[in-house]
Each structure stands twice: as C-alpha cells, then as structure tokens.
C-alpha cells in the first residue's frame, strides 16, 4: 500500500513542485493550504508523513507540529519541517517541538526525496 504524504504549504508553486516529486516517487499525496486545514486533514487521514511549512496563515507549522505530537492517536505521523527562515533558533524550536526532521528552503529535490524515503523506511 502506498504511503500517504500530506503537503502543507501556502505557496501554490511550492505545493505543485512537492506534489509532483512525491507522486513521482509513488506516494499518495494530500494537500493543505494553511495550518488549520493541515491539522484537520492529519486527524482525518492520519498520513505517514507531513511536509510542513513553518510560515503559514491561521496556524503556524510549529503549532501544527505541537498539536500532532501531543495527540497519542497520531504517534505514527512523521513530520518533516520546511522553513524559509534559516535561523538556527527556528531549527532548534522545530526539533524541540517534536519534528522528526528539518530542511531549509530552497532545498535540493534529491535530498528531500532521500530524506522522505528514509523517514518512511524507518517503520
């Protein structure tokens, strides 16, 4: 069964590129355009992995991350955070909130695919 991946980002063009990449790898792709939508879809679909943008309207990526990780039903959900703000503090904050991995934009598509693959293989 194909793994489910949720792409949460408010930048349409980035969503398009991620969607294309993930589908090419054979994953099932879900899309959310803001933080609230992301939380809803994670609850409803329980994806295997979330590509989570930090700067999103309504709810930031950090908040989404915190909510997911504090929910015991969603323990299986991996989170890969993506941020355009490359500060160390942001990386540390994301990891502290329970994100499983962290990548800064712009990312290398090869690295991203590798990282997603390895994260999903851990199970």
């Amino acid at each position: 069964m194909a793994k489910k991946i949720l792409i949460a980002d408010d930048e349409q063009n980035i969503v398009i590129s991620l969607e294309f990449l993930m589908k090419r790898e054979g994953y099932e792709v879900l899309i959310a355009n803001d933080g609230e939508e992301a939380v809803q879809r994670i609850r409803a679909e329980v994806p295997d992995l979330v590509l989570l943008d930090v700067m999103m309207p309504k709810k930031s990526g950090f908040e989404v991350c915190q909510e997911v990780k504090s929910n015991p039903d969603l323990q299986s959900v991996r989170i890969l955070m993506l941020t355009a703000k490359g500060r160390d503090t942001e990386v540390a904050k994301g990891l502290a909130l329970g994100a499983d991995a962290y990548m800064t934009k712009p990312f290398s598509t090869k690295e991203l695919v590798e990282r997603v693959r390895s994260m999903l293989a851990e199970h």
Partner: peptide, 18 residues
C-alpha cells in the same frame, strides 16, 4: 527579506532540478 527571497527560490530550484 530572507523568507521572501527563499520562497520563490525554492520553487525555481525545485522545478529546475526536476
């Protein structure tokens, strides 16, 4: 500024690489 610059760069890089 960093954020605003990186966001379009992200798309450009992603599509170019693809």
């Amino acid at each position: 500024v960093t954020h605003e610059l990186r966001t379009p760069l992200t798309s450009i890089r992603a599509f170019s690489e693809m």
